[in-house]
Structures are given as structure tokens and as C-alpha cells.
């Protein structure tokens, strides 16, 4: 029996929408195009089928998301994931946090850092570089925005150049977007432990 997940975890749950997703069989050509359906596609996630209600947004957001998170050069993939995690902790998106904590672990194997973030959240005490990255991304994610010039100076001090700083802004901001979909349009579910 699946139950809602309310605690941070690096084990990726299912995602179950609160709204009724687009019925795949009845999808319009525009919805199919936005979902990037190809003959080889076996299953489309309920998340993508949910967002297909607004195909014009979905069509743009998918490539934008991929470019920001998986683009070449600039900020390292692990630190983009850390920016995503910080935003997702601020917005308490359990699902996004799980996906991107697991990707961060894939890059770094630093389970200690993820455990610290899950336990202490925004008060997490991390090594200097990770601390600067995490704190800046978290403070950019609050409403109102709490990040200050001092937070940018911290990024410089730990060695992030301007392009890396731009990439961190983008990864935190795109999760301000993703969290507002994933956490508010549905919930994470997992089997009883």
C-alpha cells in the first residue's frame, strides 16, 4: 500500500497528481509534440501528462530545464544538483529533493552531506564550498529573496567564477519553477517501509 512521503529521502518516490492528467489516447497533436512523443516512447510519466494540460509551457520548459541542469561547461553537475536541492528544501518539495539528492550522490558519493542537509535543512553545516553554494541557492529561493551581496562574496571566496555563479542562480531558479509544479500539483508516494 502506497502512502504519502513527508520526510526528505534520497530514495525516489512515485509521484501522484491531485489533478487528472491528460488522457494519452485523447491528446492533441500539440500536446503530443510538447510531450516529445516518439514511436519508441513506451510510457509517459503522470507528471508530463499533467503538464500537457499546458502544452505551450511544457514545450519550452523541458529544453530550458535540461539546458540549465545538464548543459556543458560552467558550474559542475554536482553543484547544479546542490542548487536544486537547496531550492527544493526551501520549498519542501520531497519528490524534487529525492531525485536531485540521488543525482548528487551519483556524482559525489557524499552521503554524509545529504544526511546533514536532510537532518538540519537550512541550518546544515557543510564544507566551505558546498556551504556557500547551498546557502546562496537557499537564500535566493525564499520569498522575499534573502540572498545578499555577502552571499555572492562567499561564492567568490570559495572559487566560483562569474559563469559558475550564473549557473547556480539558474539551477536554483529553475527549481523555484519545478518545485511549484511538482509539490503543489501532486504528492510523492512510497510503499510502506
Amino acid at each position: 500500500m502506497s502512502k504519502p512521503v513527508h520526510s526528505f529521502t534520497a530514495k525516489v518516490p512515485e509521484w501522484s497528481p491531485y489533478v487528472t492528467p491528460v488522457d494519452f489516447a485523447g491528446a492533441t497533436p500539440e500536446q503530443l509534440s510538447a510531450m516529445k512523443i516518439t514511436p519508441s516512447n513506451k510510457g509517459v510519466s503522470s507528471y508530463v501528462l499533467t503538464l500537457a494540460h499546458d502544452p505551450e509551457s511544457l514545450e519550452i520548459r523541458s529544453p530550458l530545464f535540461n539546458l540549465i541542469m545538464y548543459g556543458k561547461d560552467g558550474l559542475s553537475p554536482a553543484e547544479r544538483e546542490l542548487g536544486a536541492i537547496a531550492a527544493s528544501v526551501v520549498n519542501r518539495c520531497i519528490y524534487c529533493t529525492a531525485v536531485h539528492a540521488s543525482r548528487f550522490l551519483g556524482h559525489t558519493k557524499r552521503t554524509d552531506l545529504i544526511e546533514t542537509i536532510f537532518a538540519d535543512e537550512l541550518q546544515a553545516s557543510l564544507p566551505p564550498r558546498e556551504q556557500a553554494v547551498f546557502d546562496f541557492a537557499a537564500r535566493l529561493s525564499t520569498t522575499p529573496v534573502a540572498a545578499t551581496p555577502a552571499d555572492v562574496r562567499s561564492l567568490k571566496e570559495v572559487g566560483l567564477d562569474e559563469l559558475e555563479q550564473v549557473d547556480l542562480i539558474l539551477s536554483a531558479a529553475i527549481f523555484g519553477w519545478a518545485n511549484r509544479l511538482m509539490h503543489t500539483l501532486g504528492e510523492p508516494l512510497a510503499e510502506d517501509a
Binding site: 489533478v19 494540460h53 520548459r61 535566493l140 540572498a147 551581496p149 552571499d151 542562480i169 523555484g176 519545478a178
Partner: peptide, 29 residues
């Protein structure tokens, strides 16, 4: 469908606000 449209609107505006806020901080430094 309108719930999803509204969510995308709110999510995008919050993205845009944060990109601009971040870049303005970088400009300041």
C-alpha cells in the same frame, strides 16, 4: 487544465524573479 496553466504562470514568474534578483546581486559585486 486551468489549474495547470495557473501553476505554470506562478512557477515561471517566480523563476524569472529569482534569475533577475540573482543577476542584480552579481552586478553589485
Amino acid at each position: 487544465p486551468d489549474i495547470v496553466r495557473l501553476s505554470e504562470l506562478a512557477a515561471f514568474v517566480n523563476y524569472q524573479l529569482r534569475v533577475i534578483a540573482g543577476l542584480m546581486l552579481l552586478k553589485e559585486i
